[in-house]
């Protein structure tokens, strides 16, 4: 089921836990990391169908990860859902310029995140 494998990059453990639960209920296989450097390493070594990426994380921040992902030919088409508490227009603009596939602002609804990821991965949403 590698096409349903997601990486959730989020340093807030409670948010990561709730997101993982919801995404698993929707049929995804979810891996979580809380640190930017580790996230980048895993993205370069493993295959994921999509990434949920928080911007404000320790280590390499979300913008830098996004830049590195888009600069890597192997990852250039990877769907990236940017997740951030900083919903300011300029952050959104920067994320879009750097090639974010979509942008969700905290506090988001679970359904919105699931819907976006299902759209990226071409799967129908499973009933939970």
């Amino acid at each position: 089921m590698s096409d349903r494998r997601l990486l959730v990059v989020e340093d807030e453990s409670n948010i990561a836990e709730a997101l993982s639960y919801v995404l698993r209920r929707a049929g995804f296989v979810v891996e979580t990391v809380s640190d930017g450097d580790l996230a980048l390493q895993r993205l370069q070594r493993e295959h994921f169908a999509a990434v949920v990426l928080d911007i404000m994380i320790p280590g390499t921040n979300g913008f830098e990860i996004l830049r590195a992902v888009r600069a890597d030919p192997a990852l250039a088409d990877l769907p990236v859902l940017v997740l951030t508490a900083r919903g300011q227009a300029k952050d959104r603009q920067l994320a879009e310029e750097l090639g974010a596939s979509a942008f969700v602002t905290k506090p988001f609804s679970n359904a919105e995140v699931v819907e976006r990821l299902c759209a990226f991965t071409g799967c129908s949403q499973q009933e939970s």
């Binding site: 807030e12 409670n14 948010i15 709730a18 997101l19 919801v22 508490a85 919903g87 905290k106 506090p107 988001f108 609804s109 679970n110």
Partner: peptide, 11 residues
């Protein structure tokens, strides 16, 4: 605030 509200809302 946004982070805590997000966690509360999701849960």
């Amino acid at each position: 605030v946004l982070t805590h509200v997000t966690a509360i809302r999701a849960a």
